[in-house]
Computed example of a mutant assay.
Amino acid sequence: MPVITAPENYNAEELYVDLRPSFGQPLYLKCEGFNFAGSIKLKAATAMVEAAERDGRLNAESVLVESSSGNLGVALSMLAASKGYHFVCVTDSRCNLATRRAIEALGNDVHIVTEPTPRGGLLGARIDHVRELCAADDRYVWLDQYRNPNNWQAHYRSTAPAIARMFPDIDTLFVGAGTTGTLMGCARYFRERHRPVRIVAVDAVGSIIFGGTQGQRNLPGLGASVRPVLLDESYVDDVILVPEPDTIRACHRLAHAGFLFGGSTGTVVSGAIGWLTAHGHGSGTAVAIAPDLGERYLDTIYQTNWVHGLYGEDACESRHHADS
């Protein structure tokens, strides 16, 4: 049993869910939400903060600031509380109430942006606000998850090697795309080791990460209205765009099997199951990365009136059926 003195010192790295009984496809789901931040974002947050400390950018007077749709904000809030910094999370109206309350409970502040920019959307508006804070006060330190190489390097050093150890015969990996830190870290790891692993990126309809048409997105997490600087598409073999109603159906199907996952996980699972259904599976193993858990989505994805109001009454019905 591990004994820790700081919350960032614990992360369950080797927990997987076999989705064949629930979805009828051979897919292992790597669960990244079992840490004190509740999501995979703890890895990137820790790597970025520790690099800033090593570089001398952070001191006792520093105020961390970052744009986040939610999960990275919670991770940075936890680290700030643990390390004695103050943190300001710049988010937008899509951020779940439970997430905002978690950030505030950890002693930090939340700034909510409500007006999108003409070209950058709400993400562009959040980044503009961060820049304004930094320009007004030199105590502010912006880690910039969208450009920071420590974002992808965290997964190059931890997430991808853990998958390779568990599944030496992996042939397909499904990774959700937001900042593309997880995607690029895993893709670079397997490419540089000459592993024949097909990298399939999963994005949300309405996101422009891979050149799609920008549209309204109501769920925080995956997707972006600004193309991530970290992305190098040469490492990506295929891309899947998932509509939000399909994300919700996947989340509900997982919940009905006893697994309460978050919206980002629902998107990845929906995309992966759809891809496997269309393409079949090779002789090796297919793995998908589950970035988050579902407690922060109880008032949205798992709230019937919220779902019906935005997507209609059939949005909670599952379209995927397990093999009999």
Rank of each mutant, 00 (worst) to 15 (best):
Q216P: 05
Y235W: 14
V229N: 01
G206N: 05
A255S: 14
L254F: 01
R217E: 00
S234L: 08
E233W: 01
P243V: 05
L230I: 15
D238E: 14
G223Y: 00
V197F: 08
G212I: 04
P168C: 12
I209R: 13
I163E: 08
F167E: 12
G215S: 06
A255T: 02
L183T: 08
H256S: 15
L219F: 07
R193H: 14
F259H: 14
F167N: 13
G211W: 11
R198A: 04
T179W: 09
G185F: 00
Y189V: 08
V229I: 07
L231G: 09
P196A: 09
R198M: 00
R193I: 04
D238A: 15
G211V: 12
I208H: 01
C251R: 02
S158Q: 11
L173W: 03
I199V: 13
V205T: 12
G206L: 02
D232M: 08
G181H: 13
C251I: 01
S207C: 06
T172P: 02
R165H: 13
D238S: 15
E233Y: 05
A160V: 10
L222A: 03
V242R: 00
G181F: 11
I208M: 09
R193Q: 12
L231M: 09
F167Q: 11
E233M: 13
P168F: 10
A204E: 00
I199G: 06
I248S: 05
P220H: 13
A164D: 14
L183G: 10
G211D: 13
T159F: 08
C251E: 03
R253A: 15
L222R: 00
R253G: 11
S234Y: 03
R157Y: 10
A177Y: 10
G181E: 12
G185R: 00
P243A: 10
R198I: 03
R188G: 02
F190H: 08
V242T: 06
E244G: 08
G221H: 07
Q214E: 12
T172K: 10
A250H: 05
R198N: 11
R249W: 02
G262Y: 10
G178R: 02
G206V: 01
H252P: 03
Q216D: 13
D238L: 01
R227L: 08
V175F: 02
E233S: 14
P196E: 10
R249N: 04
V205Q: 12
